[in-house]
Design a protein around this nucleic acid. Sequence first.
DNA 1: TATGTATTGTTTGATGTTCAAAGTAATTTT
DNA 2: AAAATTACTTTGAACATCAAACAATACATA
Lengths: 139, 139
Amino acid sequence: MNSLDELTHELFTFFNGFSSWENSVIKTSDLTVSEAHAIEILGNHGQMKMKTLAQHLGVTTGTTTVTVDRLEKKEYATRESVKEDRRIHLITLTEKGQHAFAEHHQYHSNLTEQILSVLSSEENEQLVKILKKINAEAF
Amino acid sequence: MNSLDELTHELFTFFNGFSSWENSVIKTSDLTVSEAHAIEILGNHGQMKMKTLAQHLGVTTGTTTVTVDRLEKKEYATRESVKEDRRIHLITLTEKGQHAFAEHHQYHSNLTEQILSVLSSEENEQLVKILKKINAEAF
DNA sequence: TATGTATTGTTTGATGTTCAAAGTAATTTT
DNA sequence: AAAATTACTTTGAACATCAAACAATACATA
């Protein structure tokens, strides 16, 4: 196996591991995958309008409408229209939503710690540096 | 931001980038996401029975039945029962399926090259080493 | 200011993903 | 031979997603 294939293999193994870890974490909660993603984004960036949320999620506004409908029904978020432009609806996490976000973030930290535990502190530094580069330039 | 949060953030940014890249690649093909995953696994491991495929996919055999139904209809794979144990069905990629696998693998290599292009050869080696450790021990 | 255009968000109809539970067929165990 | 187990399929339900059509609001310009 050449060096390119080797890295390809490790990258996709890593991605798949990450992916199934995430799904299993979400399954332990009261949330569906799309609801969890929406809460993640709202938690990280604060209140935003439908369109912005849809862009962050990488889906259409139609899909986002359905997701936010459920978040509202389950009381994780609220919709409110803006006085200055009544087309716009701002989505905001409720207390319950913020709590779910904090909990989800804790799971993420746990996975990071699990990953760190198999690396030396030197490798830790290398990984952060490499990921920063990739995230900034590669996608 | 502390060091743990920093790595968490970079890890999940990386994961999300990877994820949306993969979805957009699959969208350019004739395949759905679950079909593409099945082809990926069959291409990497060769022919296998339904149950094994389901385990690799991380879904139930019921779900796998549906996926393989479609792969068969679209002529990417075939089902054949085994003489020695007629409960077992072996799934095999057709020519067309193998071609799709090769094409998908090429896309993966392209992404890896794209990632490599922003890294020094030293960082490349570090990344492979780190990923191997994580994949072997962390999940 | 009136009309046409653009934007924001919702609804609808279609396809796909997934699971759990129930069902079928074949094999193994007792 | 009966009971238990295994491999797979079917079914019904919830969820995810899109494209296209729609409604409400805002903006632009003639």
